[in-house]
Simulated scan of single mutants.
Amino acid sequence: MSGIRQTQTKPMRLPAPSAVDALCANFPGLTPPPALAPRLEALLPCRALAADRVLFAQGQTPKAFYMVASGEIEARFAAQDGRMSVLEHVRAPRLFGLAAFVTERPARYEAVATTTSRVWIIGMPAYRVLMDDWPGFARALMREFAERFEGNLRLLEAARHLSAPERFAVALRQLTAERAAAADADGWQELRATQSELARLAHLSRQTVNQLLRAAQDAGQLRLRYGRIAIRP
């Protein structure tokens, strides 16, 4: 109709979660005292990282540990032969880097952004508040890192004692747990993963991983797309 000016409605942008919201999401059932939240927010700055940016290097002693706000961080270490081995891929809202920070010792691995990412920095002032003033936080933090340590031990055991197909299966399960989207109506879960990532995680060559992926696809266990894998547990 002439004379009537149509306007386009801009989609509403949801506010980004705060650091305290992310901590609560990482530790379900754990709620800080009301007066503690604003104190913590002031102590938890957020840092942006470009893809492939190293947050801290292997052998460096970090002055903080971290929580992923967005994107993904790869924890990996270099073996004596120069090959890189992946410990885990950390996504929001998980934490990482605690061991080197608490012990004040050089990190045994490096942390690298696999894509454009943001992390909250948890330095000593914030750490003291979390441990001393948030009831139940210390117990929850210990449980999380104990579970992840157990998972890393399983990967190391797989690298030393399991066959190539078994190591491949362990690595694929870990990536599925870390990255997979919700299952579709037919039960398929899709995740972003490359052959190089699977090879580093499983301590296998890319050629071996390629052969195992093709065999699994031929058996109907997964579907391959460029940079993505669909798997049905």
Score class of each variant (00 low, 15 high):
136 G>D: 01
72 E>F: 14
80 Q>A: 14
126 A>I: 00
83 R>T: 15
137 F>R: 04
91 R>L: 05
146 A>F: 13
152 N>V: 10
153 L>P: 04
206 R>Y: 09
149 F>Q: 07
195 Q>I: 09
114 T>R: 12
162 L>E: 01
117 S>M: 01
101 F>D: 00
158 A>Y: 04
196 S>Y: 04
157 E>G: 09
110 E>V: 14
198 L>S: 03
129 V>K: 00
86 V>L: 09
159 A>N: 13
180 A>F: 15
135 P>N: 09
165 P>K: 11
131 M>V: 04
84 M>C: 11
168 F>W: 06
157 E>R: 15
176 T>C: 11
98 L>Q: 12
199 A>H: 15
194 T>Y: 01
146 A>I: 07
204 L>K: 08
106 P>M: 10
132 D>N: 11
178 E>F: 07
101 F>E: 01
167 R>T: 11
98 L>M: 09
142 M>F: 10
100 A>S: 02
207 Q>C: 05
175 L>R: 13
162 L>Q: 04
137 F>W: 03
103 T>D: 13
78 A>P: 02
83 R>W: 04
102 V>F: 14
91 R>A: 12
165 P>E: 12
108 R>A: 09
113 A>C: 07
136 G>W: 02
188 W>K: 05
135 P>V: 04
105 R>F: 00
148 R>D: 11
189 Q>C: 08
208 T>D: 11
106 P>E: 03
82 G>P: 11
97 G>C: 01
169 A>K: 14
144 E>F: 12
109 Y>H: 15
193 A>H: 13
139 R>S: 06
178 E>Y: 07
192 R>G: 08
139 R>A: 15
158 A>E: 14
144 E>G: 03
105 R>G: 01
106 P>F: 02
72 E>D: 15
153 L>S: 14
159 A>I: 08
143 R>S: 09
93 P>C: 15
134 W>H: 03
158 A>V: 11
171 A>W: 10
103 T>P: 00
194 T>R: 02
174 Q>N: 06
171 A>H: 05
140 A>T: 08
152 N>R: 13
133 D>E: 11
198 L>D: 08
94 R>A: 11
143 R>F: 05
202 A>Q: 12
117 S>I: 02
144 E>W: 07
79 A>T: 09
123 G>N: 00
166 E>C: 08
106 P>D: 02
202 A>V: 10
132 D>L: 03
100 A>E: 02
74 E>Y: 03
165 P>D: 12
142 M>C: 10
93 P>M: 08
168 F>G: 08
132 D>C: 02
127 Y>C: 01
199 A>Q: 15
76 R>V: 13
162 L>V: 00
86 V>H: 05
150 E>M: 07
93 P>W: 09
